[in-house]
Each structure stands twice: as structure tokens, then as C-alpha cells.
Design a protein around this nucleic acid. Structure first.
Lengths: 158, 158
DNA sequence: AATAATTGTTAGCCAAGGCTAAACTATTTG
DNA sequence: CAAATAGTTTAGCCTTGGCTAACAATTATT
């Protein structure tokens, strides 16, 4: 069974990109992303509920469903979770409300979101794109980067 | 059953943040994020395999497991998926390789990744942080934004 | 007031992405 | 070369976050 099959290239025949980070660091990068994913959806719900309360005065499950493009059953299930987590209070056929903790989370999320959104616009990204990108990016931007984005935005305003 | 319970605030008592986008647009933002999540992991694997091949000459399941901080069983299962998707070729107890399609994906991913990483560094973010943020952000940056980031980085280099 | 429409919940299904434990294969070493 | 070690796979379990369908409650309409 000789081995003249597909074979790996020599270590760096095609140089490009950065070197591989040390294993532990690399692992931590992926771990951070995985952790972010766990809280991401929760935060999106809470943030949206906060926004609806702020702008509309109430937050109904149906609104959430249509704004998230998700079935009402999914929203209903999610609300149960948010309830268990102590983030919202809900009574059937009534608007949702945020608990103290929920409000806190909503506010933090909104701040992050706004910073990223304004930063992207300041960078020159079109509004629609900026909104989409911000929605995806907001959960993956560290406080350090966030601070830098904020400073950048401030110093690039008319 | 009168209703002097917790009640919504009037529409905009506490002004802040941006207005709510129209429903369809809002829905699209969330949908985009959900779609990104589906491909994200796949791309991460493919990208990592590509990096390992490039830098090490081979990509073994064990390396992936330790670099992703995930069990080997998880990697094994994932490899089966990548196989079914026609992205990698694998033979038991041998290094993985990327198919044409896999190579393409790896390259695209790496490019995106690099652009984001270099952009963050150009912005002034510390290397370790930049790496973590880039890992999370890369899948959520549109082509439009990516192009802007690239231009920015270029014009901010010594 | 009766009916229709909207809104919300529940049950039950599915796929993805983790995990551990056990079995098997390959490689290294005594 | 036999035994130990390292690498890989499989089986089976769990949680999340989607879905549809059926039903229940509320609100709106005629």
C-alpha cells in the first residue's frame, strides 16, 4: 500500500494569510464565538421587546413573530424561556414587559447595536446594509472594539 | 377587572436610538443573520482545514478538535457532514483534504477573515482582541462593508 | 349577540451541534 | 513483535430553535 495518493503540500508553499495562532488562543476564539451564540438570540428578543415597548408602547407576540419572520409558535416557546430566565413578565393576550434585569439587558444591547450601526454609517456603509450587518455583528464585538468604534464615529461626524 | 396594572409607556417618552425599521426590512435583517448562522460553522471548519493544510501540510481530526475546543466525536460527526456536502474528502485515519469546492470556500473565508482582522488592527484594536472579534464578525459582514474595510485598511498603512 | 378574524398556546416533529462512553485502528515504544 | 498510547469512529443522549397543525381565547364586525 504505497502512498502516491493526494498528498499535503509542503508547509508553506503558497504563502498567505497570518500564521496559525497557538492552540489555546485559537481554541479560545472559537469558544468565545460559541458562547456568544448562546446568548445572541435571547438578547435579540429582549432588545426587540424593548424597542417595541419604547416605540409602540406595547410588545405583542404577533409583532415579534412578524418582525423576526418566525412562527408564532416559536415566539410563544421563546417567551416561556425568557420568563424562566426572569427577563420578561407575560400574561396571555397581554403585552409583554421587561423585568428590571430584562430592561438592563435591552439597554445594553441597544447601546451596542447603536454604536455598531452608527460606526458602519460613519464608515460610509449604506443604511440598509449597515442595519443588516449591525444586527449580525453586534454580538461579536468586544468592549474594546466597541469603544474604538464609538470614538471613531464621534470624530467623523459633521 | 379594571386595568391599573403595569402599563406601556406612551410611544416615545424616552427618546433614544433609531426608529423601528419597517416590518419587512426588520424581518430581513433577522433572516439574514439566521442564514449566516447556518453556514457559519461549516465555513469555520473548512477554513480551519484549509489553514491546517496550508501551514502544517495536513489536517487531522484531532487538531481540529483541539483548535476548536470541541470533542473528537463532534469533529468526526461534522466531517461526515462536510463530506456529504462535497467539501472535503476523507479516508479513515488519514488527513483530510478539501475538494475543489471546499478549497474555494476556504479561500473566500480566509480572505474575509483577513480583511476583517487587518481592518480591526488598522482601527487600533489589540491583536488578541482583534482575532477574537474577527472570528465572530467575519460571517456577518456584507461584501459592501468588506470592500470599505479593505479600502480603509489600505489607506491606513505605513 | 353571533360570527369572523386575530392572537396565543400546546403538542409533536425535525435538524444541528454539543457531549460521554465504548469500540476499533494505527503508531510508537519497550 | 507485543503492549501501550494516540487517533478515529460509532452509538446514544441532550438542548436549542425552528416548523405545522389543532385548539383556545380575545377582539372586531356585522
Amino acid at each position: 500500500m504505497s502512498d502516491h495518493e493526494q498528498r499535503p503540500l509542503p508547509p508553506t508553499s503558497r504563502l498567505s494569510g497570518d500564521a496559525l495562532p497557538p492552540v489555546e488562543q485559537h481554541a479560545q476564539q472559537y469558544e468565545t464565538v460559541r458562547n456568544a451564540h448562546e446568548t445572541e438570540l435571547i438578547e435579540d428578543y429582549v432588545e426587540l421587546i424593548g424597542d417595541l415597548l419604547r416605540h409602540r408602547g406595547e410588545a405583542r407576540a404577533a409583532d415579534i413573530a412578524s418582525r423576526m419572520a418566525v412562527s408564532q409558535a416559536t415566539v410563544s416557546k421563546m417567551i416561556r424561556r425568557l420568563n424562566e430566565l426572569g427577563l420578561v413578565t407575560s400574561r396571555p393576550y397581554r403585552s409583554l414587559f421587561l423585568t428590571e434585569e430584562g430592561q438592563q439587558m435591552a439597554e445594553t444591547s441597544r447601546e451596542r447595536h447603536d454604536i455598531v450601526l452608527h460606526f458602519l454609517r460613519a464608515l460610509g456603509v449604506r443604511d440598509t446594509t449597515a442595519r443588516i450587518d449591525a444586527e449580525g455583528m453586534e454580538h461579536h464585538v468586544s468592549d474594546e472594539t466597541l469603544a474604538i468604534m464609538q470614538r471613531f464615529t464621534e470624530s467623523h461626524q459633521p
